[in-house]
């Protein structure tokens, strides 16, 4: 009994997964749904194995675009938030335009980017960057400016200069906020990568990114392979989020309450 209790967090999600698979097969068999509308899990697994080389290669292409965009967004996010934290007037002037970047659908940016950069990795990177930048810059700025007034007074009392205040107080205080932004960005970076593939991908050597392969499989009516590509994207997304969660744990577990209290 104890074993069951202690490993709840592992076997409960597995159990849910098994239940979903069971319902999937049940519904498909019960209503006789055809393969091109809803392929069986087995068919998808077979397609994934058959196409494994292609899927692996295209996952790598998408992942490189997504991670490049994600990493540059993280760096630009930190720098941008430090600029934004300098003054309230600066924030007022810049914020609407950062919002506009975020609000404009990528489907509109993408063709412009292809005109400027041509299809391929740079365009995919920029699209991911544009999607990831906002949550990082917004959260980190919040962290930099929401330092307790007494803390700032403390630093004044010990005659700390502006640089010390930023390095010893504001940046560490903003770290959990930055990581929250990073977590949101991590969960949408793959969306950026795939959107990038769809609009700005190219297929040098016959294989493109996952978004590109979705178009190809669709045209070829390889529906189970299409689903397999979808699941591969899903897996890559998980990979992203787990890296960020690991980083989050590594940087915060010693001192931040969020790790001790939350269960994810």
């Amino acid at each position: 009994m104890n074993f069951l209790k202690h490993n709840l967090r592992w076997y409960l999600p597995v159990l849910t997964g098994a239940l979903i698979l069971f319902l999937w097969i049940l519904v498909k068999e019960l209503f006789g749904i055809r393969n091109f509308i809803l392929p069986s899990p087995l068919k998808i697994a077979q397609a994934a194995i058959a196409e494994r080389h292609v899927l692996f290669q295209s996952a790598m292409i998408t992942l490189s675009g997504a991670s490049l965009g994600f990493v540059t967004a993280a760096i630009a996010g930190i720098l941008g938030s430090m600029v934004m934290a300098l003054s309230g007037n600066l924030r007022l002037s810049l914020y609407p335009y950062i919002l506009i970047l975020q609000m404009t659908p990528m489907a509109i940016f993408a063709p412009v980017l292809v005109i400027w950069l041509g299809p391929g990795l740079p365009a995919v990177t920029v699209i991911t960057f544009l999607i990831c930048f906002f949550p990082i810059v917004a959260n980190t700025t919040q962290g930099l400016i929401s330092v307790d007034k007494n803390m700032v007074d403390l630093f004044r009392m010990i005659n700390a200069d502006r640089g010390q205040e930023v390095r010893l107080l504001r940046l560490p205080h903003a770290l959990p906020y930055f990581l929250t932004g990073l977590r949101i960005a991590g969960s949408i970076a793959m969306i950026g990568g795939i959107t990038g593939d769809l609009f700005a991908g190219n297929a040098s050597g016959g294989v493109g990114g996952l978004g590109f392969m979705v178009l190809v499989y669709n045209a070829q009516l390889k529906i189970p392979a299409l689903w397999a590509a979808g699941f591969t994207a899903c897996l890559c997304g998980f990979l992203f989020v787990s890296v960020v969660i690991a980083l989050n744990w590594f940087l915060l577990h010693k001192w931040h309450d969020s790790i001790a209290k939350s269960d994810v």
């Binding site: 403390l154 630093f155 010990i158 005659n159 010893l168 001192w255």
Partner: peptide
């Protein structure tokens, strides 16, 4: 100055908090 709240830096250990003014 000692504030109403302890105003410790949560990412620093006891020792590192105490030595903050010296570090500055």
């Amino acid at each position: 100055f000692i504030f109403q709240e302890p105003t410790l830096l949560p990412w620093r250990t006891v020792t590192r908090n105490i030595e903050l003014p010296l570090e500055v």
